[in-house]
Design a binder for these strands. Structure first.
Length: 291
DNA sequence: GCCCAGGCACTCA
DNA sequence: TGAGTGCCTGGG
């Protein structure tokens, strides 16, 4: 990957497989602020980063070459060749070709597993702006203050220890509603090592999923999101209402239960299931398919 | 005001 | 096993 450094900025040549808007707005992460089109601030791994994309360049700041190589490069999955993946999918069938064409700049972020888990527990029965709001509230209430960047205060997502001191009413006060006890349960099971997030990367996908399902409020969809966006299990295929709609529309032509779709995806997409899901999801949602 | 959203747990047949 | 229903909350 080629980049240059100017003061606290890292500047990368624009590429077909990097569109910051598509990456952030495709539903995989919730800690970003849109300042303007193609101009965002994100909070991840306890750091604040602005990403400004122009026609020719992608500018990241404030950061350093060391931090960029050690953190942001892996966060944005920059070592993976998405062009090959897209080409492979486009050759599979006309639907995938369409979906890939529609949002060629999507990438799968490597997020913190713990933050990912709590964020997706919050996500049930909520729309993205609400999810962002609750995650922000929790970070402000329990997380470490990071800095004031360009006039706005940023807080890290709380650690397991930091969030474990929370009482149910505190979490409810963050507008988490009926999910508050689920979050409490996640804190407890992670803290007492009933579920060990850092070990999930070494387990086969199916076993890792079984571990996550021990947590209250975590079903198949949320477990798959955590495995895909936080753990890096690329065969995970989260099926939400949008993915269900578009899969039925493309491949089944009728109402189909999620287990059947899951089995089809595993067989048809294999290790590209996760990334395929992202292209399909974005496509379905932008088209407001079935609405 | 009412309806529903990027699910899950719980209940009851 | 499978379908039906309630759930905090805020935006449309």
């Amino acid at each position: 990957m080629r980049y240059k450094q100017i003061e606290d900025k890292i500047i990368m040549d624009a590429m077909d497989s990097f569109e910051i808007e598509q990456i952030l707005e495709c539903g995989q992460c919730f800690r970003f602020r849109k300042l303007a089109p193609n101009d965002y601030v994100i909070v991840a791994w306890g750091k604040v980063l602005r990403i400004l994309q122009t026609k020719d360049e992608i500018i990241f700041y404030p950061t350093s070459p060391e931090e960029f190589e050690n953190l942001w490069s892996s966060y944005f999955d920059l070592d993976k060749d998405y062009d090959i993946i897209k080409q492979h999918l486009a050759e599979k069938d006309i639907h995938l070709a369409e979906a890939v064409q529609f949002a060629p700049g999507i990438r799968i972020l490597r997020q913190e597993p713990w933050e990912c888990l709590i964020s997706f527990i919050i996500s049930q029965n909520k729309q993205i702006p609400h999810i962002k709001q609750v995650v922000e509230n929790i970070s402000r209430m329990f997380g470490r203050y990071i800095c004031n960047f360009e006039g706005y205060d940023y807080y890290a997502f709380p650690t397991v220890e930091e969030l474990s001191v929370a009482k149910e009413e505190d979490i409810r006060a963050c507008k988490a509603g009926f999910r508050a006890p689920y979050i409490m349960d996640a804190c407890q099971k992670i803290k007492n090592k009933e579920v060990e997030l850092e070990k999930l990367v070494y387990l086969p996908y199916e076993e890792a999923k079984k571990e996550l399902l021990k947590i209250k409020g975590v079903g198949s969809k949320i477990a798959d999101c955590v495995l895909l966006f936080g753990i890096g299990h690329e065969e995970a295929f989260p099926i939400d209402v949008w993915v269900k709609r578009i899969m039925e529309y493309f491949y089944f032509d009728k109402d189909t239960n999620s287990n059947e779709i899951q089995a089809f995806a595993k067989d048809y997409f294999g290790n590209l299931a996760g990334i395929s899901q992202q292209y399909l999801f974005y496509y379905a949602r932008q088209l407001r398919l079935g609405k």
